[in-house]
Each structure stands twice: as C-alpha cells, then as structure tokens.
Design a protein around this nucleic acid. Structure first.
Lengths: 357, 357
DNA sequence: TTGTACGCGTTATCAT
DNA sequence: ATGATAACGCGTACAA
C-alpha cells in the first residue's frame, strides 16, 4: 500500500540499513546521505510501520492504561495527566476500558494486556481482585497503580484516611455531631479497594473526633451522582420521621433517631447527588444539611461544594514518570507514593450553631 | 521472552500453521487437534503477538481516536460510547490527544495517525484546520468525525442551529428580550468549527425570534468553566452600571444598556462558570439572571441547569458502528448524521414576568 | 486435515 | 560510513 523502507532505499540510492539508521538519527551516517534519505522519505510520504519496528526491536512505544470507565471525572483526569507526559516521551496511549461487564474485565486482564502491544501499563482502579493483583505481579513489564494504595507494587494516591479525617474534623469543628456517610459498596473479593478504605477511614475519623456513628445515617451505593442521590434518599427516609428540618430526637444509636445534620460523601459525584436529593426532600444546603465531599471535581466550585481536593492530573503525571524511568532501565522499588489532599471550604457546609440551634 | 507459536506447535505436536488455524477457529481443523492446541497454548500462557499478526495480515485490530482533550465531559463521553462498541468487536482503542500545543497537534496529524498502528480513526473535534481536513481526506482507511458537521466526509453531531433555536425560543417564550450569549472564540483558519456554528446559530435564532442582539451582552472565551465565568464577568462589567438587579435602561443597542435578563451559554461548562460568576456579582439565578446551556452535562441536574441535552455516548456509539461497517467492507457515503437534541427544563431559567417586572 | 515455506517491514549483526 | 542478510512471530498460499 504505502511506501516501505525499500522504496526509500531505492529512491535515495542507499541500502535499507542506511535508511533505517538515517531516519533514526544514528551518528554513523554522513550528513549528505542523511539529507538524501530524508528528502526521499519525505517525497514518498514514508512513515515507519510501527508493527515491523516493534517486531524487530521488541519495543512498541505504546503504554496501556486500564480504566474502569473513561467518562468519569477522576479517571479521565488521571488519563489526561499521564498522557501529557507519555506523549512528550513519544509513547502512544492504548486504553483498556474495563467498562462494567465482568467478562470484559477478564479479557483485559487475561489477554489484552499481554498481547505485546505495550511496553508498560498504568492501572487506574478503585478495586482489584486477588487474581488481578496476581496478573499484575506476573507482568513482564513495568506497571503502576493509580487511585489507591496497592501493596503488591508501585501505587500513587492520596491517603484516604488523612483525607477523610480532614473532612470529619472540619465538620466536627463546625459543631456537627450527627454526621452521616455515603460511600461505595465494598466488594469482599477485592483486598484492594478504595471504597473500603474510605468507609473504614470514616469510622476511624469519627472515633478520633470522639463522635459516634449512627448506622441509620450511613448508606452505600456506587460512586456516581445517581448513587449519591440514592444513598442520601435512603438515609433521609430511614432516619427521618419524614421530610422536615431535622428536629431529631437525639444523638443515640438506632433507626428513627432523626436526620444527620451533615453528610460526608466518599466522592464529589456522590455529594452532587446528595445535594439534589436534599433539595428534592425540601432540605436546604447547608441550612438544614451540611455536605462535604472528596475530589474537588471540576463542577464543585459552581455548586459551592466544600470538599477535600486531590489532584488527579498530578497523580497521572507522577505515575507516568515512574513508568518512563522504569523503561529507561531504573528498577523502581515497590511502594506507595502519597499525593497531597487539601480541604477546600465553600458553601455546602455551615456551622451547626447557625443552623440547627 | 514469552512463548511463541513454535512452542505451542512443538508441545501440541503439530505445525505452526495448524496452531494458527486452530487458534483462530478456522473450520479446517479436526476437533481433536484443536483441543490439543488449545490445551498447549493455555498451559504455556501463550498469547498471540499482535505485532507479528498485524505485519502479516495488514490489520491491527485497533482504532485511533483523536481528541482535543480527554478530561472534558463531552469528549470522554463520546470516547466511552465508542469504546463500548469497538471493544465488543475486538478492537483496541488508541488515543491521540491533541492536548493544547500546536506542535503536538501536527505530530498527530502528520505522523502518529499514519504509522499503520490503526485500522480506522474516529476524529473528535470542535474545529479542524484546512490542512487537517486534507489529511483526513487522504487517509487510506475509514474515518468519521464526531462533534460537528464536517462536509469533507462522514460526521455525527447535533444540529447546532436547531439546538440554539430551542434555547432561544424557550427564553423568548419566558418573556426574555435582552438575551446575552457566551460562546467560544472562533479561529478563522478553521472552516470547520463548532464555536462558529453556535455563535452564528445564536444570531440566527435571535433574529428568528424577532429579538435584537446587544453586542454588550455577547462575550467569547473558551469552552470551559473558567472561560464561561470570564465571559460572564465581562458582560456584567461591560453592560451593567454595576452589580445590580438589572434595572437597565431599555432594550436598545450599544454598551451600557443594562444587564441582560438571560444568558445563553454555548455549552454547559460555560454555563456553570456563568452561574458562579453571577453569584459572585450578587446576582441570583434565576431571579436576577436566567441561564441556559447546551449539553446536559452530568452535573447539570445537581446545579438545576436548564439546558439543551445531547447524547455523546450515543454519538460515539453511532460513529463506532459506522467505522465497523466500513471495516467490514461497506463503502459508507460521506454525509452528516444528525443526532437529536432536546430541551431539559430545570431551575436556572425563569419567566421574565415573575422576576424582572 | 495437515505441513512446508515464503512474505510482511524493520532492526541488528557482521562484513567491508 | 555503508551494505548484505538473518532474525522478529505470525498468516497463508501451495503442496501433500
């Protein structure tokens, strides 16, 4: 179809070996012939066949990225951050979308990732099954996990415990005592799970703040806007005696103990859903219900959401740099790279004294 | 490094040709030997080398996707929609991120896309330079453009004129006459440009509604939250005599004619920024300023944004299907495939009579 | 139904 | 500084 290295060789009057050298900028080519070759290649519209090149060198100049979904703010942001670095280093990005179905997830882990199409892999995950962790460990090329702490290899993420602590401490300082929580369902077959990490971190932070957790104020769903709305509705209907302004009966445990005065969401998307749900139930935010999230999603500012910010772009870039280093021969040590998180105060959480007095 | 087809052949006691046939499910293999081969492949952990395979067949089983940025709601949604279809058809996705710099943009169009790494390409774009359109036309494999009307080939998008009309008609029906607009800057070197299409569509829709456009109520920036905020600030400071409730002096043209009673944003991200900016200027939405967007971004509901919805997931899927058809041999005709848009009424726009009377 | 042998387009080795 | 040639791992005539 298109021109091959032989065509270029013929037109420029040298051997294919010389063409290859000239095009790759190797020093063992005279300036004159290099010019000839470049001109010929240009006039023929020649572009190297990455397949043939890969077959010969063993390198693909491509990096795989495993993502649970592309159209989620966190994942797409990490992707963007990683891509900026990798692109500049001359690598293409191949996206392996786990996309819901278990079947596809298996295909990615058992075949796609091993087809010799990539030189390294970035794994962007909220949870990893044991088998998947084993696959990663057996990979014969570098890998980095982004989004949570993964003790089996190199990982990049915020410290969930720390981030949750910041949110709870803030709410506690505002005077809230009945703090609810909406988080992700934890899949027991995953030993690696951000949902679980944050769920546990919530409990720990509450304990540290000297606050009791009312199970009627806790609900789980998935890390989406709709999920956050569902979980919030559940708390409002389970705990409240109806839609009111939260004139609960006390702070004791058990159902029907009144509404929480604040809800901490395990991610901003869930917090968005919580805001919608609160409004639908006639609750004003923050007058009747304070809400705090994690992420600092791009839409958080417009919504006035108080949240614990993290920097996915930076995490993607950091992970990409580690991969590049590894590809250059350094043998990075397994370990957890903690990236910073920071409380961003906006309008969705208010002092208890001003509102629930 | 890892097992090759020769290893499988040796272990299963047949030739490499038979292994190849068995693994691809060709009918000319006895069931017995197929089983032998599959077992051997399995025990060796054999996975086909996509490079060698591609080199031999000429097909890569990968599809390129050109995107201006990954971490934007619209683009990542189209990506997700396309990926679902392509993945099921056995194709990998290679992402070519144009990512800001002009230099990188050129690299993608002049080299990356031509490296024989992909069988077809999906081009996701808001604007295309003439040279880029030429590159696409010369491609020796199928291509589809998503996001705007591209007369040089096959494209999938909403009808911008129609979508803008729906927004303006709605605002007009609400009684608004001083309707402002925030849109994207138009790059004159692109004959293909969504920004321009929407900017022009705004003017046309206003004319059709019998409304005059006050240039002091129009501002351009980029399609981001920050861009929307900037553009809105500009209108508020240019047109208003200060931050007030819009007790302007009339509907005539010229600067300083008072604030618009409504702003139409060319995309939801800009609308988000407009909401923030309005709030910062002491304007309530919708009491003092009605706002309508285009997209139905995932966060639009939580914000109560009235908007003209489009379905990027569906657009990505539609484009992917066209590509698959083309790869199967059909010769799709160039043309514009219009996908539906629909007004979604929420709380960010209110009747003029209730608010500005 | 199965095996042999060549070709795909590069790179790397070894000469020259 | 350059050329000839053998890999790289697979698909596929063609032959058996």
């Amino acid at each position: 179809m298109s021109a091959s290295i032989h065509d270029v060789a013929r037109v420029s009057g040298v051997s294919t070996a010389t063409v290859s050298r000239a095009l790759r900028g190797l020093p063992t080519v005279s300036e004159l012939t290099r010019q000839k070759v470049l001109r010929a290649a240009d006039s023929l519209g020649y572009v190297i066949s990455s397949n043939a090149s890969s077959l010969s060198t063993g390198r693909t100049n491509a990096i795989g990225v495993v993502v649970p979904a592309i159209n989620k703010w966190f994942y797409s942001s990490v992707l963007e951050g990683a891509d900026q670095i990798l692109r500049n280093a001359g690598y293409d990005l191949i996206v392996y979308n786990l996309g819901g179905s278990e079947e596809n997830r298996q295909r990615v882990f058992n075949r796609a990732m091993l087809r010799e199409r990539i030189d390294a892999v970035l794994i962007l995950c909220r949870a990893l099954l044991e088998v998947e962790q084993a696959v990663i460990a057996d990979l014969h090329y570098p890998s980095v996990v982004v989004g949570g702490r993964f003790d089996g290899g190199i990982s990049v993420s915020i410290d969930d415990g720390d981030a949750c602590g910041k949110a709870i401490d803030y709410l506690a300082a505002l005077g809230h005592r009945r703090i609810g929580f909406i988080g992700g369902q934890t899949d027991d077959s995953s030993s690696f799970s951000v949902s679980r990490a944050r769920n546990e971190a919530f409990g720990a932070a509450m304990a540290e703040a000297g606050l009791e957790v009312d199970q009627a104020h806790v609900a789980y769903s998935d890390f989406t806007i709709a999920g956050g709305a569902r979980a919030t509705e559940q708390i409002l209907s389970d705990a409240g005696t109806g839609a009111g302004s939260g004139t609960g009966t006390g702070t004791g445990a058990g159902p029907g103990t009144g509404l929480p005065s604040a809800i901490f969401a395990a991610c901003d998307e869930m917090a968005f859903g919580a805001i919608s749900a609160a409004r639908r139930n006639g609750l004003r935010v923050p007058e009747d219900l304070s809400i705090v999230g994690i992420d600092n999603h791009e839409a958080a500012e417009a919504l006035g959401l108080t949240t614990v910010a993290q920097d996915p772009l930076g995490q993607g870039a950091a992970a990409a740099r580690i991969l590049l280093d590894a590809l250059r021969g350094s043998e990075p040590k397994p370990g957890w790279i903690v990236t910073p998180s920071e409380l961003v105060v906006r309008r969705s959480a208010a002092p208890m004294s001003l509102t629930h007095s």
